[in-house]
Design a binder for these strands. Sequence first.
RNA 1: GGGCACGUAGCUCAGUCCGGACCAGAGCGUCGGACUUCUAAUCCGACGGUCGAGGGUUCAAAUCCCUCCGUGCCCGCCA
Length: 579
Amino acid sequence: MLRALRSEVEPAIEETLADLGFPTDDLGIERPPADVDAVLATSVAYRLAGEAGAPPSAVAADIADTLGEHDLTYVGSVEAEGAYVNILPGERYYADTLAAAQEEGYGRLPDRGTDLVLEHTSANPTGPVHVGRARNPIIGDALRRLLDFAGYDVETHYYVNDAGRQIAVFTWAYETFEEDALPEPERDSPEYEMVRYYRKGNEYLEEADPEAVEAAEAEVQAILQGLEAGDEGTYERVGGVVDTVLGGMQDTLDRLPAPFDEFVRETRFMRDSSTDDVVARLKDTDYAVKEEGAWQLAFEDIEKNLVFLRGDGTSLYTTRDLAHHEWKLDTFDEAVTVLGEDHKLQARQLEATLDLLGHDTDRLRTVHYSWVTLPDGGMSTREGTGIDLDDLLDEAVDRARAEVERRVGDRVRNDQLTEADIERIARQVGVGAVRYDIVAKQPTKGITFEWERALDFEAQSAPYIQYVHARACGILAEAGEAGAGADPDRLVEPTERALLETIARLPTVVEESAAALEPHAVATYTRDLAEAFNAFYRECPVLDADPERRAARLALVRAARTATANALFVLGVEAPTSM
RNA sequence: GGGCACGUAGCUCAGUCCGGACCAGAGCGUCGGACUUCUAAUCCGACGGUCGAGGGUUCAAAUCCCUCCGUGCCCGCCA
């Protein structure tokens, strides 16, 4: 409802400023601090004071007077406070918020008619998903939900690296080494079984005697050449390894969950000759140079050249990625990619090159995140260092289960949790806590992984928000979900008003977070919402209130439940009906 | 060496893009308090900060600009 209020207030302020003879290029609209009763404000008077030749407070008073004469649906009053003009909501604002938020899809924005492709994770299919990479699917999946909620038609892609040297090494190793020479797999799952060959192969290439390494390298090269030449047999050999590992990785990602609409293979752009096509066009550009036999682009404002064709005439990962992105831009209206911070330079070069090829690169946006590291260093699939995402999720669920069981004994609420309930809650809380911990932070900040911190179930974590949802569900279950015909005018307590005002912000939060590609802002919002609900919960009994109030408060609880559920949905955190 | 990020209470963070009610907010931890009352995974209170340092712009700077310091990432005819 804040969106509706804002969209009627903005033109009114603009008109007001014009009437008073002021410029209207900056309306100075902002959200007032918590201790101010307004839901919207403008500080424009500061900037106009000089022009008006009057103190800011006098200008603010003028603006408030003129603005107050407008007939605005959702505005109760306009008040000048110092240099600020504060917009206070009217009864209609609360009433419409209460009604809107009880609808199932509250917070969802209208369809924009924009096809957007979201690429995330895209980890090389070499082994188990580890925590160092886990930020990618968690941020990625939150973006999928957020953009979908904000009205985009989102298609999610995992770009599969099935053409690189690592995969060639993997295929060679898988075909070369016997299983009995390998350690026991850490888990009974394909990617854990397969990664042993990958590690063994890399170890061999580093430690075997030079002649043996040379022979092995020749086999690896043969695989790479086979792919480049479009040899079907080679595709099949490599594809078998890739599919097996990817299948296992997908099972892990499903636990988050992080679903994909399509797994786009890199070899696709070699086979359909679009990579050759890109190369041909790049050679024709003014920035193309041939140095030491290799074709490259020499950018004006990027230090490093981009090699797009090797001296031996074969393409590089980057070249194929260019073909990949041309396809994205041809097929979709917008493209968003979630990448690690190590890809920043490449992302810049990619964009510059696409720009060079005549594409509108404003349609392409990238979200970069910093690594999750261990206290004593990074994580690596090849070296087998790091925490597997499966282990983290298992541990999280185990700890959550222990917590649920500990609470069953001194449970105040008179309900019976079955074994299935306990398992459900443990999974929702455990996985939710991991997701929330990661999605609530700005992606650009580095995270050092520590078990205790990642699995803290106290306030400012997923369970804190989930608990609010469970409480709301509990009240509604007790009340039998009745309460139609609620009179919003009965909601006059400060905590009731504050809760409604917070609920009213959800669509704005969705809109702004989606525009900025910042799901963490939704997480910040969920905390405000949970705090507002808890304050209301403390001050306002629902079930024992007199009939009129009870009906109104039940409606408010229902609205809060929907807002909480939907905000959690956007984050990809499940909303338990009981805890 | 160059480029790009990040630096806010003891710890983990929000606020920084778009300067304004910020003499800066949470949570954890510490200390104290609230379950015969709709779920105490909750709530209330106390303690805790020269917003990395310095300079500049501005009526106004955590927020913009510059310099420096610290940390991370990148600088391959790898992916």
